[in-house]
């Protein structure tokens, strides 16, 4: 088994090595042709390595996965260090530090307060010690408290108070589809999506859909009898919505696949133009 694996790995390495050589030859007239040929071959290899996971877990996938984890973790670390710490924090902490890192000092009377998150950050790192690990809870408390307070009022506003007023809807339609009596309704009966029937039915569906959906999420009462039937209708409407959302996403996902296949066939294999 191990021998077979080695043979397959060697074969794949040879294949991609050959691909690199062929690309390098075709790009020999261009600047950095060899490097670019290597990078295109590498990108193609990594693409196929990830796709190979669809068959089963294998050494190529493991290679791509581990490489990606290491490279991406370091990438974000470098970005965070240079952009946030050196670019934004040091210029506010002290003039000496700013000069040392050749950043323009952002003078402000309140810059001293930026030492507080630095201290809290160091306290967070105390987790690594057995004795002072408890200190890491303080910065955590600051983060959780701040965002809990923020979320409490924000969501109460956007997901409750605003939604209440959005549900106030005229069941007999709004202009120009307002209900003007049964006779007028019959004589102007229109099945099109923009007609009065559709407008009125839609308002009813939205209103009762919301109510039944909310009943489904009611936890304090057993879902039986009429309440249970409303809850059942609620979950049906939820499922229809989830289905619609699922269907809506399919096209977008397929276009992603098309993008990768285009890379393989155009940029790497150069089969299509």
């Amino acid at each position: 088994m191990r021998r077979t694996t080695y043979i397959v790995v060697a074969g794949v390495v040879l294949l991609f090595g050959l691909s690199w050589v062929l690309h390098a030859v075709s790009m020999s007239g261009e600047a950095d042709g060899i490097e670019r040929a290597f990078m295109i071959t590498m990108a193609a290899f990594l693409t196929l390595a990830i796709y190979s996971f669809l068959y089963k877990d294998n050494p190529f996938y493991k290679f791509a996965e581990h490489l990606y984890v290491g490279v991406s973790a370091a990438y974000w670390m470098c970005q965070a260090f240079w952009s946030t710490i050196v670019g934004n924090l040091f210029p506010r902490l002290s003039e000496g530090l700013s000069n040392y890192f050749q950043q323009p000092y952002q003078a402000s009377g309140w810059n001293i307060t930026y030492w507080i998150p630095v201290i809290l950050g160091i306290m967070l790192l105390m987790r690594l010690t057995e004795k002072y690990g408890w200190m890491s809870r303080w910065p955590l408390a600051m983060i959780v408290g701040t965002t809990a307070g923020l979320n409490f009022v924000r969501y109460l506003r956007s997901d409750f108070v605003v939604q209440v007023s959005s549900t106030f809807m005229p069941l007999l339609g709004e202009d120009p589809h307002r209900w003007q009596g049964f006779g007028a309704f019959i004589s102007n009966l229109d099945l099109s999506a923009t007609g009065q029937l559709a407008a009125i039915v839609s308002n009813w569906v939205i209103f009762f859909g919301v109510i039944c959906g909310i009943i489904y999420f009611y936890f304090s009462k057993e879902h039986s009898g009429a309440f249970g039937r409303a809850s059942r209708l609620g979950i049906w409407i939820l499922m229809i919505t989830f289905g619609a959302s699922f269907g809506y996403t399919v096209m977008g996902r397929i276009s992603l696949l098309v993008g990768r296949i285009t890379f393989l066939f155009r940029d790497w294999l150069e089969i299509i133009s």
Binding site: S165, L172, Y218
Partner: peptide, 22 residues
């Protein structure tokens, strides 16, 4: 429980609001 009461309040307000809108 408080969340459920809020939902019940929502349903009641929605019904009153429905009448108000009409």
């Amino acid at each position: 429980k408080a969340q459920d009461w809020a939902k019940a309040a929502f349903v009641a307000l929605a019904i009153v609001g429905l009448l108000a809108a009409n």
